[in-house]
Design a protein around this nucleic acid. Sequence first.
RNA 1: GGCCCAGUGGUGGAAUUGGCAUACACGCGACACUUAAAAUGUCGUGCCCUUACGGGCUUGUGGGUUCGACUCCCACCUGGGCCACCA
Length: 936
Amino acid sequence: MSKYDPKEIEPKWSRHKGGISPDGAGSTGINNKYEPKNIECNWQKKWNKSGIYKTQDFSNKPKFYALDFFPYPSGEGLHVGHTKGYIATDIASRKKILEGFNILHPMGWDAFGLPTENYAIKHKIHPRIATEKNIANFKKQLEKIGFTYDWDREINTTDPEFYKWTQWIFLKMFEKGLAYESEEPVNWCPSCKTILANEDLENGRCERCGTQVAQKKMRQWVLKMTAYADRLLYDLDSKDLDWEDLIKEQQKNWIGRSEGAKVKFQITNYKLQKNTKYQIPNTKYFIEVFTTRLDTIFGCTYCVVAPEHPIIKNYESRIMNYEEVEKYIIQAQNKTELERTGLAKEKTGVELRGIKAINPFTNEEVPVWVADYVLGSYGTGAVMAVPAHDERDYDFATKYGLPVKNVIVAKNFQFPISNFQANPKSQTPSSKQAEKAYKKDGILINSGKYNDLTSEKAREKMTKWLESEGIGEKKVNYKMRDWVFSRQRYWGEPFPLIFCPNCKKIAESSKSPTVAKAMAGKQIPNYKQTQNSKFPPTTDQPQAGKIQNMEFSLGEILNPGWIAVLEKDLPVKLPEVKSYEPTGTGESPLAKISEWVNVKCPKCNGPAKRETNTMPQWAGSSWYYLRYVDPKNKKAPVDKEKEKRWMPVDLYVGGAEHATRHLLYARFWHKFLYDIGIVSGKEPFKRLVHVGLINGEDGRKMSKRWGNVINPDDVIAEFGADTLRLYEMFMGPFAQNISWSTKGVNGMRRFLDRVWGSNVKCQMSNDKSNSNDKIQNSNLERLLHKTIKKVTEDIENFKFNTAISAMMILSNEFEKSAYGGQRANLFKEYYSNFLILLSPFAPHIAEELWESLGNKKSIFLESWPKYNPKLAQEEEIELVIQVNGKVRDKIKAAADILEEEAKNLAIQSEKVKKIIDSRTIKKVVFVKGRLVNIVI
RNA sequence: GGCCCAGUGGUGGAAUUGGCAUACACGCGACACUUAAAAUGUCGUGCCCUUACGGGCUUGUGGGUUCGACUCCCACCUGGGCCACCA
C-alpha cells in the first residue's frame, strides 16, 4: 500500500489564497461561492493519487469489510436508485476509517447473464464487447460520486481468471456428488429459450421477459441444494447473523420446512371382503402420502395422487376408466403453470375407478383420485384428503360430491351431542353443514381412541403408532427445490465437464447395488441432516472408487459418462463465436462449435464431447465476495490466511429482491466451501441491510418506459456529488421505498451552501476563553456533543436521515452565531468536529473546508470525535406539568431536579392552580427529567 | 389463501421505545434586499372557534389496558411486499 503523502499533492492544491494566521486560526480565506464542480473532481484525483483508500491485507488495525451487491452492468447505466446502497456503505466505511479501522470496500461486476446477451443480440454487438462498454460506463458513473473503492481489487465474473474458480467450485460439488444430471420437467421460457430455476419465476412467468413459462422435460444439471436445507434454515437464527427479520422471514418461507408424517395407504384388492384384516407386510402396493395434519386422518374420505404419480401406470390393468384418466393426465400436462396454479383455478380430477386405498387407522376403504391440485414434485406426490379440515380438499369434495367428515372441533367448542352425528353423512358438530373447512388445531372427535386429545398430542401419538407398525414415519419436507443450474445460452460459464461414451460403459459395469440404484433413479440417497453435519455423509451413500482399475469420483459414478475436466485444464474458456443466438432446441449455441465440443476424454483418452450448457447468472455471484479478499490468487479461489483475516463480510447492503436467490445461493455455496475447508466460517454475511427503492418523481418504478429515470450524472452536474449523497440519505428511512424529489435535492444543496457560508462568515478562533461569544459557544458545545452522539449512533443504525437532520440543527446554530450584523467568533474546534461528522456524507466539501482551516492532511486521517456524555445532556430542562395527562404548563428546571421539589413547583403553578380549583389531588406522578402529572 | 410490513400536517418524514405529537426538510404565505425577477435573508405555517386574550380537537377506524398511548393489547378498514393448490 502506498502511503498517503500530503507533500506530493499539496502544492497544486493551495487554490485558496486565504491568509492562515501563524497560530493556524484566523480567517479561512474562502469567500467564493460553493461550486462543487470546482472541487469534487480534484479531490477524487487527489484521493486516487495518494492511495488513501487502498486496502492493506494485514495490519494491526481491526478489519471492516463493507460490501454492496455488485451491479449487473446493463446497457442502461446506473440510476440514482442503484447508488443509494453504495452511498450508505461508503458512509459506513468512511466512518470506520475515521474510527481507525482497516477497511475493505471493493466493487466489481456481475456481468454474465441473459440481459447482456439479449441486449447484444438486439444491437448486434458481441456480449463481451457490450459488457466491456457497459462496465466502462458504470465505472465512470461511480467514480464521480467519490467512493472509497479500492479499484485494485475490481473483479469481473466474465473474466476467465475469475470464472476459472467458479468452475473449480462446481467441480468440487460434482466430485462430492452434489451435482447431478436430471431429466425432470423444468421451467422453460419460450422467449429466452432457456430453462429457469424456480427462483427465477414471478407468478409463473419469466422474471426477465414476463413470458409465461412452460413445463418442459429437458436434460439439465442440478445442484443438490436441498441437502443443505436444514442448515440454511437453522443458521438463520445463529447469533453470528445480524439480519433484518424481513429477509430472514422471506428465506424461511422459501425454504418452507414442514414437519409431518409419511403414511402408507394400502391399495385394496378390489375383490377382498370389507372385513378382511388389514395386513401390511403381505403386500407392497401402497400409496404413500405426506401430511402435516396426521391428527385429521380419521376425517380422510379420499386420496389424491398427482398426474405423474407412478401408481397410475402400475395399476393400468385395474383402473376401469383408464382411458379417461389418461386423457385427463395429458390435459393436465398441457396446462401452463399459470392455468394449473393460477388465481382463477378450478380444481379438476378423475377418480381411479377400480382401486381403493385403506386408511390404516380406520381400515376404511376410500376412493383414489388423480387431480392436478396435487403436485408431483412435493412430498410423496400423493395426499390423504380431509375435506372437513383442509380448504382445497373441501372445494374438491364439494365439487365432486365426496363426503365431509368432521374430526376436529375448536378447544372451547360447546355442542349439543344430540345434534352431533344426527346426520352421519355430514357429521358436523352443529345441525348445519359447515360452510368451510375448519383448518385450525383443536380437539379430536370421531377419532376412536384418539378422541379428546389435542391436535398436537394426537399427532405425536399417532406418529408413534405408525412407526411401531412400520407403516409410516415422521418426515420433514421442504418447499425449496434443488437448484436447476444449467442454461441453454451462450453468455455464461461453460461447465467443466466432458461426456465420454467409453467411460459410461465402464461406470455402468460397476456391480455395486447402491451405484446401480443411484444411476437408475438419478438420485443421490438422502442422508440424515443434522445442524453440524458436513456434506457428503460417509454412510448409506455410494462412494468414489475404482471401477476396472480406473478412479471415479462420486460425481462420475452418479452421472455415468460425465467426466470432470482436470484442474490443470481450467478455465474452460468460453469460445469466441460469430452467432450466439439461442437455438431454441434446448441445445446451447456452443453445441455448434465442433472444434470446441470434440475433445479427448481426460480419463481414458477416447473421443468425447464437452457439456455445452452454461451456468446461470447466479453462479459467479455465489462466491464473488471471497475473491475480493484475494483477487489475484492463481492457486486457489482464496488464500486461507486472507480469508480468515477478512471474512465474514461485516456489512452487506442490497435490495430485498435478492432474499431468496442470491442470498440463498451464496449461503449454500459458502456452507459447501466450509465443508471442504476453503473457508473458516459457516456464514458469509454477518450483517445484512436492505435498501429501499427510489421511485421516479411520479411515484412509479424508475424505468425507461415511463421516462422517469434520474441519472446520477445529471444530478452531479447540476448540484454536485455531495448533494446527491446527502439527499439520497435524507429522503427517508433507508429501507423504505421513496419517490425522488428534485425540490428536495435543491434543499440539500442549500444546506451545503450554508455550511460553506458559515465558514465565510464566521471568524474562527482558537481561544475558547477569550472568545467574544463565550456564552454562545458554550451553548454550542452542548449541542455539538449531542450531535456527535446522534450522528455516531445513527450511522451505526443506518438512520442517516436523522443524522443529517442533527447536523443541520448544529449548522443552523453556527449560522446564527455568525449573524446579528457582526462577524462572530466561532471556536475552531467545534467547526472542525462538525466537518469530521459531515465528511462521511459529503467528503468533497468536508475536505475542501478542512483544508481551508489550514490543515495540511486529508480529513480522513483524523479521528472520529468522541462525545462527553455529560455535555450531551441538557443542563436545564423544561419540566412538563400535566393535569390528568394534559399538558398545562412548562417550567424551567434543573435536569436532575428531585421529586419533592418538582411536585411542589408543579402545584404552585398558577395555570395548574386554576384548573385544580377546589378539586382534590388524588395522585402525583413524577418522571425524572421529564414531567409531573397531577391526577384529580 | 399464507407469512410479513406500513398508515402521523399541503408533501418527505421525526418522536430518547409508554412521558411536551408534528424535529429536520420540502412547499406555501408575508416582509426585507432589487427598477424588476431570480437568488438570499427574516418571520409565520396541524386543524377548528376567537379581533384579541384564550380555548377545543388531532397520529386510518372502533374498543381496551394505563396517572399518561403515535408507541402495548383486541377487532376492523386501507395500502404495500414476499410466497402462493407445498397437503
